[in-house]
Design a binder for these strands. Structure first.
Lengths: 248, 248
DNA sequence: AGGCATTTGTGCGTATGTATT
DNA sequence: GAATACATACGCACAAATGCC
């Protein structure tokens, strides 16, 4: 959404657009914590929408912990600690600045190391046959779409999601959906490294086979191997891009 | 907030109240997924508020993934998969039904086992002296308030939060705030077991000391011990309450 | 300490889009 | 396929509260 729309029909709803604009500005620090936003009428005018749209967008952001409103004082940006970073919207808005992006990817990696091996083990213990089937479907999609960057990443994410579903925990599944947007960036980065996807496929297959033979420890180990290689790919790509930066 | 307020001043803001009422109803299944809510004027009338309050509350809930609005079709409840269960508000609304409560506590336990030992290790590696001090403060509050059920639990939660803060990951901190509402229920249950709190204090102290001497493995081990005993306390309380149920 | 300017809160009338008939 | 009814989307006007002078 532009700062001022000029007659084009809204592909997305108005409040969603306003929420995204404000959310991005807050995430990138243009409105820093403890500062007050422009007044609602000002924002409405600046964005070319009615005040109600602004109010509803503000309420959405307040629900995500980004804002707090009080009379007379205005709309105040909350400190970072109050933000619900596990909200997919907020997460995607936060990926704007490159340094925040890099840091979030590191933190994602830590979180994956804590959770995914255990999830694989859990899946090995509890997966139903139909859940195994669904995971094989996702794996086959990864193989089939290996040359399409977007589709292969979609399939990859779907694979991990199915694994979480097999672990049979709504809480864990919510954690996954929260960081799946980060996962997409992670995969996109890792796949810049050539040949990464081939070994990646092997590792996914190993996890899946361990799950199917109900080998919890084996599934966890296979997942750790997958994560190790993923981390290595990321490191390699980063080193490479830093090298290119230095050349220029 | 009652279904109809009768003149008392709003302790909480109006839209927050409406959002909570609707959120609870959705969480407890009174408005099941794919069903449509009553129309905005109906809701506004039924709740004794203006349409704008309803609209802003709906936008809040939509931001949490519970609702989707479209013209003419009305306000539709999203399927569970779309819900952002890691939102603290939604989590607390979901604790209404006892079976959901028990299941969420089990899932919380699994998640803690995956995350907290690693967080303790991370804290041991990265905690600054002032962060250590903050953790000691929280620990001392636990000791001081050991006879006050509410205050001791607050201090306990604060202790764990400070540990997460020391681990220095915004992502992990968000995970913590998400499940801290579950943690409260967990602690409240565990403390029904007499004498639980005494050993609990010892275990917290052990974690803290390991962190302070930068012993990552020791901190993780101490945290695992803490979690083991916490799980045992929960099990004991559950067995006890089931026994009482059987007696009656 | 008290009035006042300013900002969010609240409620309703109108516009717009969409599924149904 | 076009008219129509219905529900959300939108914008304005007024109320209330609260920080500042």
């Amino acid at each position: 959404m532009k700062d001022r729309d000029s007659g084009e029909q809204p592909a997305t709803s108005r409040v969603a657009g306003v929420a995204e604009v404000l959310g991005r500005r807050i995430a990138e620090g243009r409105y820093p914590p403890d500062s007050t936003l422009p007044t609602e009428p000002e924002l409405a005018d600046a964005l070319g929408v009615g005040r109600n749209a602004v109010r509803e967008a503000v309420k959405m952001l307040a629900g995500k912990g980004l804002l707090r409103t009080s009379r007379r004082a205005g709309t105040i940006v909350q400190p970072h600690a109050e933000w619900n970073l596990l909200d997919p919207d907020l997460l995607s808005w936060s990926l704007g600045s490159p340094q925040a992006r890099e840091r979030l990817l590191d933190e994602l990696m830590d979180l994956r190391w804590m959770i995914e091996p255990e999830v694989a083990a859990k899946a090995a213990r509890r997966a139903t046959t139909v859940q195994c089937l669904r995971m094989w479907e996702a794996f086959e999609a990864m193989e089939r779409e290996r040359d399409d960057p977007v589709a292969s990443i979609d399939a990859d994410i779907l694979f991990h999601r199915r694994l979480f579903e097999a672990a049979d925990s709504r809480l864990l599944l919510s954690v996954f959906t929260a960081f799946s947007v980060l996962l997409r960036v992670n995969f996109a980065t890792a796949n810049e490294h050539d040949n990464a996807f081939v070994s990646n496929l092997e590792e996914h297959k190993a996890v899946l086979e361990a799950v199917q033979r109900r080998d919890a420890d084996g599934a966890a180990a296979a997942m750790r191997k997958l994560l190790t290689n993923n981390r290595a790919d990321i490191e390699r790509v980063r080193a490479q891009s830093r090298g290119e930066m230095a050349q220029v």
